[in-house]
Amino acid sequence: MAGKVMLHYFNGRGKMESIRWLLTVAEVEFDEIYLTTREQYEKLLSDGALMFQQVPMVEIDGMKLVQTKAILNYIAEKYNLHGKDLKDRVMINMYSEGIFDLMEMIMMLPFKADAKLEPIKSKAKDRYLPVFEKALSGPIYLVGGKLSCADVQLLECTLMLEEKFPEILGEFPNVKAFQGRMTQIPAISRFLLPGSKRKPQPDETYVKTIMEVFKINIPLS
């Protein structure tokens, strides 16, 4: 019998946060081992645990999985969060790719000395949110009338956007209503409570740890 799912990453959001979200919605218990030193990272490398010398790394079902999208796809497939057929899955994947493009812009802000918020806000309002506003003009969920990983990722993304731009969903009532519905799902409601395994916004300690572990070379993909 496989043991509890184990996550190897920093004590912060980054690209592991979407994995935490999806495991939570699938109601899969997990533990975490936080990278805090260069030595821990080098041990993972010497053990052959990191295929491309990158984290996140997730131990699940006797495997050590790397590459964020591959991990998310595995979880989504295993827990029926990836659509009913090939056409559903490609739509889910297209939505997810767009969501990740937007979230990555926000994730990288703490690592940029000249970080500017306005370009992110403009792209969110002009390129990304209109897509989801249209997709949610009738359906409860993005694809196939059922909950998928893309829905979970969109919720995570909207919450990240509101942390930076509190009024940004004002022009997107369908997305805002979707957000409200999603937060009523019991597993998500619990995840949003203080004391859950959801991570706060990145702080200086998180950034400093990553830069020290990777010697300023930050392979987060």
Rank of each mutant, 00 (worst) to 15 (best):
Y9R: 01
F10N: 06
F10V: 03
K15S: 09
K15L: 04
M16T: 06
E17F: 00
E17Y: 06
E17H: 08
S18R: 04
S18P: 10
I19F: 00
W21G: 06
L23I: 07
T24I: 11
A26D: 05
E27S: 15
V28K: 13
E29S: 14
E29T: 07
F30D: 02
D31N: 11
Y34K: 02
T36L: 07
T37R: 06
R38G: 03
E39W: 01
Q40M: 06
Y41C: 00
Y41E: 02
E42F: 09
K43M: 12
L44H: 13
S46A: 12
D47A: 11
G48T: 08
G48K: 02
G48D: 03
A49T: 08
A49Y: 13
L50H: 09
M51L: 15
M51G: 13
Q53C: 10
Q53Y: 04
Q53F: 10
P56E: 03
P56I: 00
D61R: 04
G62V: 12
M63F: 14
T68P: 00
K69W: 00
K69Q: 13
N73C: 10
Y74D: 01
Y74F: 13
I75T: 07
N80S: 14
L81K: 05
H82D: 07
K87T: 11
D88Q: 12
V90K: 10
M91T: 14
I92R: 09
I92Y: 05
N93R: 09
N93K: 01
M94P: 00
M94R: 12
Y95T: 01
Y95F: 15
I99D: 08
D101T: 13
L102W: 07
M103H: 04
E104T: 15
E104V: 07
M105E: 14
M107C: 12
M107V: 12
L109S: 01
L109R: 02
K112E: 14
K112N: 13
A113K: 15
D114G: 10
A115E: 07
A115H: 11
K116A: 15
K116D: 14
K116C: 14
E118V: 15
P119W: 02
A124K: 01
A124H: 04
K125I: 09
D126A: 15
Y128D: 10
L129E: 10
A135K: 11
S137Q: 13
S137Y: 09
G138F: 02
P139K: 15
P139D: 14
Y141S: 08
Y141M: 04
L142Y: 12
V143A: 02
G144L: 02
G145D: 03
K146T: 14
L147I: 03
L147T: 09
S148L: 05
C149S: 12
A150R: 07
D151N: 10
D151W: 05
